[in-house]
Amino acid sequence: MNERRDPPPTDEQRARGRRNVAIALTLAAFVLLVFVITLVRLKEQVAVDMMTLPT
C-alpha cells in the first residue's frame, strides 16, 4: 500500500493551531460567562417576584 505522509507543520501552521485553540477557549469562556450571568440575574428576579407576590 502506498502510504502518504503529510509534511511536518511549519511554525506558521503550529502558531495558527495555537491561535485556534485560544479562540475556542475564549468563545467557551464567553458562553460560560453569559450562562452564569443569566443564572444570577434570573435568581435575582425570582427573589424579587417572590417578595412581591400577593399573599
Binding site: D11, E12, R18, A22
Partner: peptide, 12 residues
C-alpha cells in the same frame, strides 16, 4: 514580513 508567527501574547 512577519518577524515570527504571532501568538495570543501579541493579541493581549
Amino acid at each position: 514580513p512577519r518577524a515570527r508567527p504571532s501568538d495570543w501574547r501579541d493579541y493581549f
